[in-house]
Simulated assay, not measured.
Amino acid sequence: MLPVTAPVDPRTSWALPAPGTMAPVADPEPLVTRVLAPNPSPMTLDGTNTHLVGEPGSGQAVVVDPGPDDPRHLAAVEAALAARDARVVAVLVTHHHGDHAEAALPWGRHFGAPVAAATPAVAGPGGRLLRAGERLQLAGTTLDVVPTPGHTADHLAFRLASGAVLVGDHVLGRGTSVVTHPEGDVLAYLESLRRVHDLGPSALYCGHGPELTTDPGAVLRFYLAHRAYREQQLLDALAAGARTVDELVAVVYADVPQAVRPAAAQSTRATLAKLVTEGRVEPDGDRVRVA
């Protein structure tokens, strides 16, 4: 059995804002303004990050992940647009979860702008379906559509002309992302992490938590190592006699707050599905065992 050693998160040594102290509005680079939605929670961290993207002076902006349909958030986004002297020309959505997509169609109507996403359910009637590898020419700049399935099946990221990547829930500014079950897929998630890593991003602008600019590649390598670590922990727990998801979560996520245990259970189920696919564990009714 391989030793189970937790990988070191490189962000622990970075000067990131403490939880609950993120600025409500920030300009991480000239192309981007981040507006923090007022929906903090154990799962959304400080709240959902809505990003406005556009070439300065173009008079235009793209809204990426409008987030909750909240009048306070809309007012903050409109103030940020006014500061950029920009009007909205498109609304893009990384994936269908409500904390990212709820406001997409209402705001599309409000701004008179088309909505674009990976699925018709999010893009809505008359919306635009985005294709992997597509290059969008919008707001005086380019956004490359990067497929990043894993957290959800429909997840996308957007690479900016600056080299930064808007990663939605694929990578978080703090902690690690959940691979949802049954729609999430750990094998796809690992491949997506490698895909974003191979882009050599200059920064990661996350759907939740602070911007990651010091060494984005190190964060992506940590995410890959963290998944391998959790997988080995599950195998060790199974070898020690754990059989149900609840038993596995109690062992593997013993140091995780109770509020996020349901998310840990989802990632556990998704990892077990990977191990079943690989023939390393076998289902046994509502239980599992090492093959």
Rank of each mutant, 00 (worst) to 15 (best):
residue 129 L to M: 09
residue 283 P to R: 14
residue 45 L to A: 09
residue 76 A to M: 08
residue 156 L to W: 04
residue 130 L to Y: 08
residue 223 Y to R: 12
residue 118 A to P: 06
residue 124 G to S: 10
residue 92 L to C: 12
residue 50 T to H: 00
residue 283 P to D: 14
residue 72 R to Y: 03
residue 212 L to F: 00
residue 249 V to D: 00
residue 185 D to M: 05
residue 223 Y to Q: 13
residue 98 G to V: 05
residue 164 A to H: 03
residue 28 P to T: 15
residue 218 A to I: 11
residue 235 L to I: 08
residue 85 D to I: 07
residue 29 E to V: 14
residue 167 V to G: 12
residue 96 H to F: 09
residue 227 R to H: 11
residue 291 A to G: 15
residue 105 L to C: 02
residue 262 P to L: 03
residue 139 A to W: 07
residue 117 A to T: 08
residue 139 A to S: 09
residue 243 R to V: 15
residue 87 R to Q: 08
residue 147 P to N: 10
residue 115 V to R: 06
residue 44 T to I: 06
residue 203 A to S: 09
residue 272 L to C: 05
residue 267 S to Y: 01
residue 112 G to Y: 02
residue 265 A to T: 00
residue 35 V to A: 03
residue 80 A to S: 09
residue 21 T to F: 02
residue 6 A to L: 05
residue 21 T to S: 13
residue 169 D to W: 09
residue 169 D to G: 09
residue 206 C to F: 06
residue 204 L to C: 07
residue 52 L to I: 14
residue 201 P to E: 09
residue 268 T to G: 02
residue 153 A to M: 00
residue 285 G to P: 05
residue 246 D to K: 01
residue 66 P to H: 02
residue 31 L to A: 12
residue 40 P to M: 03
residue 173 G to R: 09
residue 113 A to V: 06
residue 16 L to E: 09
residue 82 A to Q: 11
residue 104 A to N: 13
residue 145 V to K: 15
residue 35 V to T: 07
residue 12 T to D: 11
residue 66 P to R: 06
residue 185 D to S: 15
residue 153 A to L: 01
residue 285 G to F: 04
residue 47 G to P: 03
residue 93 V to R: 04
residue 121 A to R: 15
residue 67 G to M: 03
residue 151 H to F: 10
residue 43 M to G: 05
residue 131 R to H: 12
residue 41 S to M: 10
residue 116 A to S: 13
residue 211 E to D: 15
residue 1 M to D: 11
residue 245 V to F: 00
residue 202 S to G: 14
residue 170 H to R: 02
residue 62 V to C: 13
residue 216 P to I: 15
residue 125 P to H: 08
residue 207 G to I: 07
residue 229 Y to Q: 07
residue 250 A to P: 01
residue 65 D to Q: 05
residue 59 G to W: 04
residue 273 A to I: 02
residue 271 T to E: 14
residue 97 H to E: 13
residue 107 W to T: 08
residue 150 G to L: 06
residue 149 P to D: 11
residue 226 H to N: 06
residue 215 D to Q: 12
